[in-house]
Amino acid sequence: MSALLSCSNVSVELGKTRALVEVSFDVQPGEVVALLGANGAGKTNLLLASLGLVPFAGQAKLGDASAHALSARDRALRAAYLPQRPQAIWPISVEALVALGRFAHGAAPDRLGPIDQGVVEEAIEACALGALRRRRMDEISGGEKARAHLARALAQRAPLLLLDEPTAGLDPAQALGVADILRAYAAKGGAAVFSTHDIALAAETADRVLLLRAGRIIAEGTPSVALTPDALRDAYGLSARLERIDNGFAAIFER
């Protein structure tokens, strides 16, 4: 099967800073890929460049087409994106927000066909939003908002999910819930790329991690291979190690 996303020599410049320097990687169907790295390492720009939402040099292909060449709609049918700080500028209902995920399929939140309705239901259920569906976005908690926005991205039903810190601000149980959703997405033939600062969660969830520093990939591979103490020290400037414990991983940092 061909890659859902392939970046080769992608560079992003923001003013005089080089946010991303000749980054190359592929994402295959069935994969969960975690992006790790300190603040400002280039995780967000890597996601945005993959979608063609920031100007970049090099090549980023979503499936068989260049991200730049795709119309907004065609791009949305290939990749769904969850920004780091998702917004609901108007306090619409949770249900209406999730339904916006069907935009590229031609559906409006107040006019969903049976297929769209089914997909929206599934996303609402996957993110445990059933009881909140009629609540307004300004009447729910931060964690609930994060789940609503994730459900919106799921409802897009694109083969590729690109999520910028989807577990930021979530309690451990909810963060694991998000990890399960990503695994399930990959198990059904999709792929998910997510950025996070939770190294243990990344190690547990991802088939592969990309460790970034100053816009470059400094380590890549399965979590236990890529996330060596040296690589972690390089990335975060701290003595760190990843330990396998009973059912998962723990990340231990020392000053």
């Binding site: 945005l48 907004a72 769904a80 994106y81 920004p83 935009f103």
Partner: peptide, 8 residues
């Protein structure tokens, strides 16, 4: 950003 990403 997200509006563009959902296909608008």
């Amino acid at each position: 950003e997200a509006a563009a990403a959902i296909g608008a």
